[in-house]
Structure formats: C-alpha cells, structure tokens
Nucleic acid binder design. Structure first.
Lengths: 147, 147
DNA sequence: TTCTTATTTAAGAACAATTATTAACTAATA
DNA sequence: TATTAGTTAATAATTGTTCTTAAATAAGAA
C-alpha cells in the first residue's frame, strides 16, 4: 500500500469512526489540508478543490474544515490577515509572520512544548491547540531593505 | 501630578512626537485602551467611547487603534472569535482562551520572553509583537462540568 | 440490488467586521 | 485670526464566514 493510499484509508476510517458520511468532497478537502503545511486560507482551499470538484461550494469548504478541526485532523490559526488559516501540524510550534511580505514560516523549538505543558499545569488549563505567533520582519525582507 | 495626569501628558506628547494631531477622540481612545487589560474589541471600545463622545464613528475607532498600534502603545490580538482585540501589554505573555466561556486570561512566564528572544536570534527575525495562544478549557469551566 | 432516510451538498442570501469615500470640521502653525 | 493639512462623521462598500433551503447522496435495511 502506498503512502497516499494509507492516508486515504486513515481519512475514511476516521470519518466513519466519527459517524460522518464519507463524501468525495470531504476526502478531497481532507487530503489537501493534511498534505499542506503552507497554512492555506479557506479561499485557497476552495480554489484548489474546485479544480477536481468544479461544483463544490464555499459553504462545504467551511463546513468540512470545521469537521476536520473537531475530529482533530487540523487546527485553525488566527493570524493578522483577517482570514482563518488551517494547519495540520498540531504540535506546539511558532509562526513567524512577516509584516512586509506576509510570509508565514513555521519554527520548532523544544522549549515551546515544555512551556505550553508548564502553563497548562500551572494554570489548570486543558490545552486543545496552541500557537506562538511572532509578528515582525523576516530575514529576507531585512536583507531587501539594505539594497 | 497624579497618575492619570501623567498618562494624559504621556499620550499627548507621544502623539506630538509622531506628528499626529491631538484630538479629543484620540485621547479618549488611547486612555481607554491603555488602562484596559481585558482585551476589548473595537465594538466594545466604540460603545465605551461613545458615552463621553456620542458622535464618534466606528471608522475613527479603527483609525485610531491603527495609529496606536503604529506608535507602539498597543498590540492587536488575533483570537478565534472573528474580531480583533487590543492589548496594551506588549511584553511576551500567553493568552488562555477558553472554548466554553470565551474568557481570555493573561499568563506570564519568564521562559516565554527567553524563548521569543531565542527564536528571534536563531531565525534572524525582528519581532515587533508576540503572543502565545492556548486554546482549550479553563479551570472554571472544568469545575462546572463536574457538577 | 433497490428502498428508505438522515446527512450532506450547492447556490445564493444574510450577516458581521473592517475599510474606503467624501464633505465638513478642526488643530497647529504663521 | 487666517490658512491648511490632517481628522472626523456618516455611510457605502468590501470581505470573510455562516445561514437557508431544496436537491442530491451515503449507508444501512429490506
């Protein structure tokens, strides 16, 4: 079984386990977001899915993303550009959000997981998702300024 | 000079330093957000300011908040409720965002400042604002569930 | 396989947060 | 006090997201 087939099976079985009907739209959206680490917006996902499913509507995109969030496949990010973005990486990680070019880069640091865990314990707060956002200017845009 | 008078002076002089006209609306909005640690939304700020300035418009609220952000008085938070919130605390700190009651609590941890500083250095990213968001269930809502 | 039914979907209307437009107003300087 | 560039109020426009409803469909039963 190929990697892709394995992901298909995983997606389908997880839908079934959660008493959700397995529709082509759901599979397509799930596959797309689970394989995409570029924090796509709903609009971007819509455009992408429409290539294979031309009649899909935005409402379906939003409804499916909500479901994917509920079954723990993805998390919704709240970043400064006024639209939600979606991320299959549920581990604590940082987002470096460049105010110049709009680029959003992931950054992993083992200290972060530890910190989230500490705060969760100290504050008696059950964490379902987390994210450290750093707003500022990325390396590339700093270099461009000196040109 | 009282604390309140000192804040007034500070606000006015900072506006002047940034070549911004000092208007009653701006002073009122600045005073309100600088003294409020409850992460108010634009709508909330509008309602509050309207009590003393009944003709103020939402556009002025948004424009002034943008200006306050630019001169480094506040930061804009992106939280899951679809509207921006504003925070005068510019130090790295965490937000515990309860999915049940919607409450947003600040949490300070010295490790966080260190972590932000490390990432900034390692990634060569100039940080202008930061925030660690923890989504989940707060202590109070957990207790309510067991009742 | 075909039937039945509860879900899901597509399409577009509705909604809410934010931004843009523009004419009237006003703070700051001369 | 007069000038003017910047600011404001009112409202229209825009944009992301959710709601509504009739048609379509997945999943289990017959």
């Amino acid at each position: 079984m190929t990697e892709s087939q394995y992901i298909d099976k995983k997606i389908i079985s997880t839908f079934r386990e959660n008493n959700l009907k397995v529709t082509p739209q759901r599979i397509a959206i799930a596959k797309y977001v689970l394989n995409n680490s570029e924090h796509p917006t709903a609009k971007r996902i819509y455009q992408e899915i429409r290539m294979a499913h031309p009649t899909v509507s935005v409402a379906t995109i939003y409804a499916t993303l909500k479901v994917l969030k509920e079954i723990g496949f993805i998390q919704e990010l709240n970043l400064p550009d006024g639209q939600s973005r979606f991320d299959p990486n549920l581990e604590p990680h940082a987002h470096l959000i460049c105010e110049k070019c709009g680029d959003i880069t992931d950054w992993e640091d083992p200290l972060l997981s530890e910190l989230v865990s500490n705060i969760s314990n100290d504050a008696h707060f059950i964490v379902s998702a987390s994210g450290l956002n750093l707003n500022g200017v990325c390396r590339k845009c700093q270099e461009d300024e000196n040109t």
